[in-house]
Computed example of a mutant assay.
Amino acid sequence: MSVRNWLAAARLRTLPLAAASVLCGMLTAALQHRGNLTVSALCLLTALSLQILSNLANDYGDACNGADTLARKGPARMVSSGRISPAAMARGVKLTAAVSCLLGIALLCSALPAISAAEPQSWLLWLLLGAASVAAAFAYTAGKKPYGYIGLGDLAVLVFFGWLGVLGTEYLHTGRLNAASWLPATALGLWCAMVLNINNMRDIASDRLAGKTTVAVRLGLPRAKIYHTVLLLVAAAAWALWLPLHFGGGLFLLCAALLAASAIHLYLLKKAQFSAELDKLLPQWSITVLLWILLLWLNAPL
């Protein structure tokens, strides 16, 4: 039961987003004919570790800050339900943070000597970015002033899952940033922000009672759905601008898949009125994001 509780706290259904972020960055690097298996593996492990750290810290932080009450819908949280003690979860957060740091350092040791020997200052930059990633994973809902409680979670997802996740992975493979890669990085970041928005729409009632002022709480469910639609449309536009730059023969298939995935998701979102219905959209959209990246890999002119 203890192992099952820790797996539940890690929220494995959120991991496809972290994987998609790294796989997207690997793809933009591969399109430039650059790749490194060791760097790719360490990028993926680091991203997954940071996602688990965020999930454990979220379980701990929401319990400490009173957001996980009986009014909250969705899967049970481990600390608030008493299945894992606050002290044990705090130790788990520290251990996962340490693992994330070690993986990040191993990643930099593997990537940076080969791509930035002439720029020793890049080590400091990447160490700071790594530290920021660990801090952001913890401070989303944990600590004295969690930024997720003032509506900055969506922006953080765009930055860390989109821009840093995709562009950082690309840079660690290639040693450079392709200006066009900002399009898929932004699109993926917005798609990941949509997952957080679904989560926050589901929890509007309990978050409002706990003083957790997410974007969804500020907007209310009807306008939060409009905001969600805007995120999707901007992301789709970014994908549509980027795809013709690299994909030729498979362009029609990819555009059709993008349109179908977007339309189906919006239809399901429009129908969803209750927390349970919104909760079902979380794993569905997470898997859709990962499948989209895999479809890009299958059609990429490598």
Rank of each mutant, 00 (worst) to 15 (best):
V159H: 08
G104W: 05
A131V: 10
S81Q: 14
S110Y: 14
E119F: 15
P75S: 03
R91F: 13
V79W: 00
V79R: 00
A142D: 10
S80H: 07
V157K: 11
G151S: 08
T46H: 08
A41I: 11
A132K: 02
A18C: 07
A20K: 01
S54V: 06
G82H: 04
A132D: 02
V39G: 00
S110N: 13
A139Q: 13
C64S: 15
A111C: 02
N58C: 04
L125C: 10
A18M: 04
L107R: 02
L31H: 02
A90Y: 12
L27V: 08
A111D: 00
C109D: 04
P86F: 06
V22N: 06
A98P: 06
S54K: 03
A63T: 01
C101Y: 15
S21Q: 02
W123K: 08
Y149C: 09
A98M: 14
L45D: 08
A132C: 07
P120S: 09
A29C: 07
Y140T: 05
L48H: 10
L15N: 07
C24D: 07
L124Q: 13
L152H: 08
D59T: 07
A132G: 05
R77D: 04
V157Y: 09
T141L: 10
L124P: 11
K144D: 14
A137I: 12
P120Q: 09
I52F: 03
G25N: 06
S85E: 09
A98F: 15
A106L: 05
L124M: 14
A137Y: 12
T96S: 12
A88L: 15
G162M: 07
V157W: 09
T96Y: 10
A87F: 15
A136E: 11
A67R: 06
P113Y: 01
L23M: 15
G82K: 04
S54I: 08
T141P: 01
L48I: 11
C101L: 15
G104A: 06
L107F: 02
I150Q: 14
P75I: 05
C101P: 12
G162T: 08
K73R: 15
L23C: 14
Q32V: 05
Y147H: 08
S116W: 00
I150L: 12
S122M: 15
T28F: 10
C43A: 09
A156W: 04
R72F: 02
L70I: 12
L95T: 05
C64P: 07
C24F: 14
R83T: 09
A87M: 15
Y60H: 12
L129V: 13
E119Y: 15
K144Q: 15
L129G: 10
A90S: 13
L125F: 11
G61E: 05
A106K: 00
